[in-house]
Nucleic acid binder design. Sequence first.
DNA 1: AGATTAAAAGACATTTTTATCCTTTATATG
DNA 2: CATATAAAGGATAAAAATGTCTTTTAATCT
Lengths: 143, 143
Amino acid sequence: MISNSSKYAVKAVLYLAVNSSEDHKILAKDISRPTNIPKAYLSKILQELSKHNIVSSVRGPGGGFYLSDENIKTPLMKIIQVIDGDNRLTSCMLSLQECNAEHPCPMHDLVGNTKVNFVKNLEQNTVGDLVKNIKMGKSFLPL
Amino acid sequence: MISNSSKYAVKAVLYLAVNSSEDHKILAKDISRPTNIPKAYLSKILQELSKHNIVSSVRGPGGGFYLSDENIKTPLMKIIQVIDGDNRLTSCMLSLQECNAEHPCPMHDLVGNTKVNFVKNLEQNTVGDLVKNIKMGKSFLPL
DNA sequence: AGATTAAAAGACATTTTTATCCTTTATATG
DNA sequence: CATATAAAGGATAAAAATGTCTTTTAATCT
């Protein structure tokens, strides 16, 4: 569905959303342990997310990662797009160049609506929306 | 979404569904050209599909691949499962072991319904259903 | 039986994804 | 300013996905 890297990215962002703030930054290694994401690989992902203004970071002592008020408004789709690229979720089920309502592939209408809705959900919902779910008791950390 | 290999598999099966029959078998190379799938790789995929009774095959002169009346009833999900495994489409968006209605992850309800519907469509629709779409003019071959 | 055909099977090569390690740069603090 | 800290960046490694090539097996046809 989405890549492992994207799942790592979402988890890391959620961890920051719940646990960090501008005056309580968190180190990559301290995200790595509870989420069970390999530290060095997570660092690469956070670097990429930082470059795209999905997370905020500060170097040096007292530094680390956190989410700004802006960051919290990031749509989930943006995280996935930055890590997996534009096409993974939206491309045609048969990889046809032109597949749309006028020129649909044989699978287009079959899965089309649900796929479009799926993507729409990811575009409309933000990191902050998931935080609400977490506060209602839904866990995102491995057992 | 689904792997390239799965897209190859669906395309190859559709090509056979439209063009082959038990007394008009088709060679791997003759599926390869119109679908633009690398011949040797396609052969591997067809081999796997044959092993799982998704396509039928006969060796030797006059042999090749075709779809039996049984094969045509294959649900699309089965093709994807054989190539991509069980988890790619159905696993939790955050890869949690236990993610369901009772123990939902923060993304579960957000994308849950559309994802479930998506999978359900693939489970309920068969190769034969797509053939109907193709006969209504929907193309599955690259430009 | 011998020759030919075409899928099955196995070995190997390339590319992409995932993962690790080491060096550099920015920031803070004594 | 020197030193410690932590992310950024670059180089490298391992694993998985994709792709190619060669040999083997099964079927057909003289």
